[in-house]
Structure formats: C-alpha cells, structure tokens
Design a protein around this nucleic acid. Structure first.
Lengths: 320, 320
DNA sequence: TTTGCTAATGTAATCGCTTACAGCGTTGTT
DNA sequence: AACAACGCTGTAAGCGATTACATTAGCAAA
C-alpha cells in the first residue's frame, strides 16, 4: 500500500500543504512542525510520488537538452554528464526533453534549453533567441549563463602534482581544434610548469580527442625520442590510449613514466590511472539551477566547478 | 502552449470523457464521433500526456535498473541502451531508478528490476528472488524474461555480406571471455562461412572488447602475416580500433580490406564504417514491455530483436 | 483594549487524464 | 401504450502532489 502525502499529514496532525512545504524545503514552516513531519515521513517510509509531483509542477519546468550533430553523444564524458543531468532533473521533478540537432519543425513547448558545449554556439543562440527561449550552456560562453569545470585550475593542479613528485621533464597531450576547455587546461598546466624553473621542460603535442588519438600521440612522441618522466593528458580517453601505447612500448608505469588524465573517468576506463576529476553531479546541479534562474529572467551567471586530484598508482616519484 | 484533452473536446464538440474513450479505444463510441475526434486530434497535433495518464491510471510502476560493478557503464553501447531505456520509460511515465551494484541496504520500493547483461547473473537472480522482485534481463538467460539482439542472425548476415562481395579469406575479431552474445555472433558467422565451400577460409582471433583491443588484434594479426580481404569485428568499438590499425599499417579500406562491425554505433564512432546494426530503441521497448508483463505475473518470454546491415564505404568487392 | 503586522498553517484549485455513474433518446417486447 | 433494454455521451470524482490565497495566532505598538 502506497503512502501518500495526506497520510503523512494525518499522522503528523497537519495539512497536506504543510507536508508539501517541508518536502520542498520552503522556509515558512516552523521548526517544530518540520521535524515532526520529517519524523513521521521517516517512520512510515514515505517517498513522494514523482509522477504526481511532475504533473503538478511541470507546467513551469520543461527543459530541452540540445546537443549538436557535431558532438559525440557516445563519448564517455558526455554519457556521464547526460546521466547526471537526468538524475538531477528527476530529483527536481523537471521534465527533460531531448531535442534534435536541427530545430526547424520543432514544436513542443519548452521553458528553457540546456546546451551542451556546442560548436556553432552563436548560430544556436540566435535560433533560441528568436524563439525567446532562455538558455544555459554547459561549457564556456559570454552573455549567457554557463557552467564549466575549472579547467585552468585543473591544469595547474596537474602541473603541481607532477612537480611535487619531482618530475622535471613533462609532456602534455592536448587536443586539436579550438576547444576552450582544452586550451584552458593547457594554459594552466604550462603556466605552472614554466614558472617552476629553468631545469623544468615542457613539450606539448596535440592530437585527436579519442583513445586512438592518445595512443598514436604517445607512441609517436616516444618513437620520436621524447623521453619525459611524466605525462599529462587533456582527457581520460586520450590517457587510456597513451597508457596502452606505453604498455605496447614496454615503458613501465609508473616506474618509468607517471601518467595523469583529466575528467575523472579513468577509474572506470582504466583502473589505476590517476586523473584530475570533475565533479559531474555538481555540474549538473548547477546547470539545472541556472536554467531555473534563467526562466525567472534573472541575470546570467557564470559558474566554475572545482576539480580535484584522484590519485592512483600511475603516479610516482620521478626516477633520478 | 500545450494542447490538452479538453481543447480537443471543445473543438470536436464532445466531452473530455468521449475523447478519452477514443484515445483508449473503448468500443462504446459511435463511429462518426470517433472519426471526428481523431480528425481534430490529428489536426491539432495532439499527444496525450503520459504523466497525467499514468497518474490517473494508478498503475504506479517504479522499475529499477541494475547494472553490475563489472559492466562498463561508459561504453558507447551501454550508453545507447541506457538512453533508449530512459526514453522508453519516459514515454510510458514509468519511474526508473538506478540501483547500486551492491544491493544490501537497498530499501526503496520497486515493482521490478531490469538487469543489464550481467555477469554473476545467478547470484543476482537469487538476490532478487529473495526479495520477490520480478526481473527481466537484457541479454540471454533461461527461466527469466529476456531480450537480446539476434546475434546468430547478425553473424550470418555479416558472413553473407562478405561472401556476396566475393571475399574468400576472412578474419573475425571476437571477444575474450565467455559472453554468450559474442559466442553467438562468432557461431553464426562461422556457420555460414564454413558452409560456403572449400576455397573460403576463416580465421578467428579474440581480444579485449575495446578500441585498443581491436587495434592490437588487427595490428598483430596483420604483422603475423594474416592477409584476409575482409574482416568482421564482434563490436563496433573493436572495429574502430581495427580500422585505426589498418590505417596505421597503410592498408587501404576498402580497396585492400573490407570492414564490417557490429552494434550499429559505427556511424557515430567512425563514419564510413559498415555495421550490423541493432535496433536499440526496439530492444528498450521490448524490455519495458517484458517488465510490465512480469509485474503482472505473466510467464517469462524470450524475445530476439532482428538486426540489419547498415552499409558503408568500408565495404567493397574483394580484389581479385 | 484595539489595531496592525508577521509568521505559520489550512483550504481548495490545479495539473491532464481516466472512469464509474447517470442521463437520455431509440428500439423492441408484450 | 407502457416499460425494459440498449447504445451513446456527459458529468464529476478521483490520481498525488503543488501553491496562491485565506485564515489564524501571537505580539508589539498605540
């Protein structure tokens, strides 16, 4: 037998309205009442019904997720972000709708649109502006609300991590193209490395953002005579490839080479690989908050979500 | 502005009850009325709201999705299936809940569980049986409802495709381990190839199910002197790797080598790569249907979803 | 004591749909 | 002619939440 809000109300001796208010964390509930209600909810094992919830709230919040044809929806990173977004919206009883890359002919009513790190951003924003749809970007932009990981900080963190382990010759595998994310990672990394002293050297190479891209980059660098003691990869996917290349070349990790990736996917992709991890659930949380703000016409905001080091056995003291 | 049932009712000059009856195919509606309503619905592009529908039909279904620790939730295939499932449940206003690999301490009420192609299947089923939770498997099993792509048929189709193009020396890159899916693909493929005549030869090699696994397998095969004119990869991920290996080796595709993957992800992963495509939305659809049947205590059913060839420029006539 | 405000709570409309029940012309039976 | 049965349709009460609005209590100021 499913427990409903009115049973909770009855047991707690309050009205359904009050119960609803404590569920949604409205501040106008007296402390004593709130805890009483929470207690009853706990005791009866109450879970609000998401379907009913959505029906009653939805009129305000249906948000579309727009990912361009250019983006790779099958990439591990995208997959993670997507899942986090869905979970976040589920928790807030928001309806989410996947939109097709091409919007002509799109007619379903929406309150806002969430754009995933898009190419052709300008064009897209224009399309949305025409339809007067508030929009929020996961990525970087100006004049629009957006949320992104702290790429510069992550780059710096990567550099400091390697420096503290005594590495003096480091390699950075970055991504071809003009992605702001990867440029920032490279900049943060280079900034710290270059400030570390004259005996520290940095080489940067750029390749395709994929496992194979990382593999080829690392293999070719090594065969071309690059012999760093530490390598920082702009993404975990590339790191997986680079890791594989080093294995194939017989270079031992971490004895002969320390490796560090970026994104926080490494633990699933290649156990043991250290990474600068993004807080993806947090990014999703901020993204949805920004969307709700945008719907209320509040001014756009840029938020940067911190990253942290997720250590692993691919990291070791530099050999002498 | 969202169109509701009452607008349809107004436009058609009937009551909402009647509209609802035609939506649900109740037989007690006069023919003329029915067609009038259908016409208006068509004209206004009306779609019944699944959330409201579910709420009022009070068949509240919450289904858990259980994926083991061993499964790679970031793999492109999994990602696709996941998205398709979510969409399907959204369309049916079913609540889906992601469950942790370890179920001890799990308390949220569920009506059923959907298991993704799991390792340790027996153990898991026992756990679920203890809790009296109906369960459905995406993959293969006995004594339980399950849905899977037609792997054997897909293997045969791959073989016929290559044979029809005149290939006489073919390579199959398969997956290490005891996955039924991949065994079936290999069997279907081998069956047809081996029946094709004495001048047709097949070599099978097995490696890791990943881009890198495919890369290494293909590279090593080639370097070991394997010179087929066509290669069939058990998954598109491996195919991407194998494709890359051939590029690196300077083997031209498709002039010197035809390639065929499996899963239907190739168009996104590696444009141009032909593949035996699964109908993933259909698999998701069947999976959810089976779950609903299981909830109603109907006897378990096994369903096999057909696959089809998605051709591409990686396929060509065999060289003489 | 009365007035005015604020904080906390109750009330009831609402979200979009289903469905039990009631109403009402027709037709068939006696 | 009276009545039952039937076929179709309208009406309104839910489903389980949210929330605008009304109400009440409590307290300070006049």
């Amino acid at each position: 037998m499913k427990i409903t809000i009115s049973e909770i109300a009855a047991h707690a001796g309050v009205s359904t309205g009050t119960v609803s208010r404590v569920i949604n964390g409205h501040s106008t509930v007296a402390k004593a009442t709130r805890s009483k209600v929470l207690e009853v909810m706990e005791q009866l094992g109450y879970e609000p019904d998401p379907v009913a919830r959505e029906l009653s709230m939805r009129s305000k919040h249906a948000i579309g997720m727009w990912v361009g044809a250019g983006e790779n929806r099958l990439s591990p990173y995208f997959s993670r972000v997507w899942r986090a977004l869905i979970k976040e919206m589920q928790d807030r009883a928001i309806q989410f709708i996947e939109m097709p890359p091409d919007l002509s002919g799109w007619r379903r009513p929406l309150n806002a649109v969430l754009i995933f790190n898009s190419s052709f951003l300008e064009q897209r924003l224009n399309v949305l502006a025409e339809r007067e749809l508030p929009s929020v970007l996961i990525g970087r932009g100006t004049g629009i609300s957006c949320v992104a990981p702290d790429d510069v900080g992550g780059g710096r963190l990567a550099a400091n991590t390697l420096l503290e382990l005594g590495h003096r010759k480091v390699l950075h595998l970055s991504v071809l193209g003009d992605s702001q994310w990867h440029a920032d990672r490279a900049d943060g990394f280079a900034e710290v490395i270059n400030a570390a002293g004259a005996d520290v050297s940095l080489v940067q190479m750029r390749g395709e953002q994929s496992v194979l891209g990382g593999y080829r980059l690392m293999r070719d660098a090594w065969l071309a005579g690059q012999r760093p003691s530490g390598v920082f990869c702009a993404t975990d996917e590339m790191a997986v490839g680079a890791y594989g290349a080093l294995m194939d070349l017989g270079v031992r990790i971490p004895e002969a080479m320390s490796m560090l990736g970026f994104d926080g996917l490494a633990p699933e992709l290649q156990p043991g690989l250290a990474t600068i991890a993004q807080d993806i659930p947090q990014i999703a949380h901020e993204a949805v908050s920004l969307v709700l703000e945008a719907i209320e016409q509040r001014p756009p905001r840029q938020v940067v979500v911190p990253v942290h080091l997720e250590a692993g056995p691919s990291l070791a003291q530099a050999p002498n």
